[in-house]
Simulated scan of single mutants.
Amino acid sequence: MNNPKQALSTNELLILSSEVRKWEKSLPLAYLMLLAGHMGLHRFYLRRPASGTIQLVLFLLTTLCYFGFYIVSDEDYAPYSDNYGVWVAFLILTLLFGLALGIWVIVDVCLLPGMVKKWNAVLEQMVVDQIVSFRGPSHPGTGSVKF
C-alpha cells in the first residue's frame, strides 16, 4: 500500500486531520523566529535542541565579543598600546562568530521549508500509525472477520 491514508475511514481521517492540526509546525512562524533574533529559536521550535543550543551559544559569543570590542574601542588607545592587541582580538572574534552565525542563518533560510515539511510528514505518519494500531481485529481492511 503506497499511501496508508487511503485505508483510513472518514472518521479516522477526521481524527488524523484534527491531531495533525494540533501539533503541526508553521513555516511562517518558523521564519519569524529565525529572522527575529538568530538565537536558534526556530530550531528549538522544530525540536532540534542540539543545533538550537549551538546557534544560541554562537549568538551569545558574538554579542559578548561585540560588547567587549565596543568597550575596548571606547577607550583612548594608541596603536602600540596594550589595548591594541585586545581590540584586535575582540574584532577578529566578533567577525568570526558573526560571520559563522550569518552564514548559518542564510543556510537555515533555505533549509527551513524542508525541516517544517519533514516534521509535519513524520507527525502525520505517527498519527496514522497510532490510528491503525487502535483498530480492532474486525475492522474492514485488516483481513480478519469476527463472527
Rank of each mutant, 00 (worst) to 15 (best):
S26T: 01
F44D: 00
F59E: 09
G136N: 10
L123C: 04
G85M: 05
L96F: 11
F147G: 12
R21V: 02
K117D: 14
S144E: 12
F67E: 11
E19R: 15
C110L: 15
Q6K: 12
G136F: 00
M115Y: 14
Y31H: 14
L16V: 04
L32H: 12
A30E: 00
C110G: 15
V20K: 07
L41P: 01
P49T: 09
S18Y: 07
K5F: 02
D74Y: 10
V122G: 05
L32A: 15
L56P: 02
L34N: 05
R47Y: 06
I71H: 05
Y80D: 14
G85Y: 11
G40V: 09
T142D: 05
H42L: 03
V72I: 14
L101D: 13
E12C: 03
K117H: 12
Y77A: 11
L60T: 10
V107N: 06
L56N: 10
G85C: 01
S18H: 10
W23E: 15
E124L: 02
F147A: 14
K5L: 04
A100V: 13
N3E: 14
F69Q: 13
S81V: 00
A7P: 00
K146W: 11
Y70R: 07
S18L: 08
F97T: 15
P4A: 08
F90E: 02
S144K: 04
S51N: 12
V86Q: 11
A100S: 13
I15F: 00
Q125K: 12
G114H: 06
G102D: 11
Q125I: 02
T94P: 03
L112R: 04
V116N: 01
G114N: 07
W104K: 12
E24N: 09
V107F: 13
P28D: 04
A36T: 12
L111R: 13
R135V: 07
T142K: 13
I92E: 03
M115P: 00
L16F: 06
R21K: 15
I71N: 05
R135Q: 04
P4L: 05
L35I: 07
G52E: 00
Y70W: 11
T63V: 12
D108G: 01
A100I: 10
K5H: 05
A121Q: 11
N83M: 13
P140T: 06
V88K: 14
M39Q: 15
V132Q: 13
G98F: 02
P137I: 09
V72E: 05
Y66D: 06
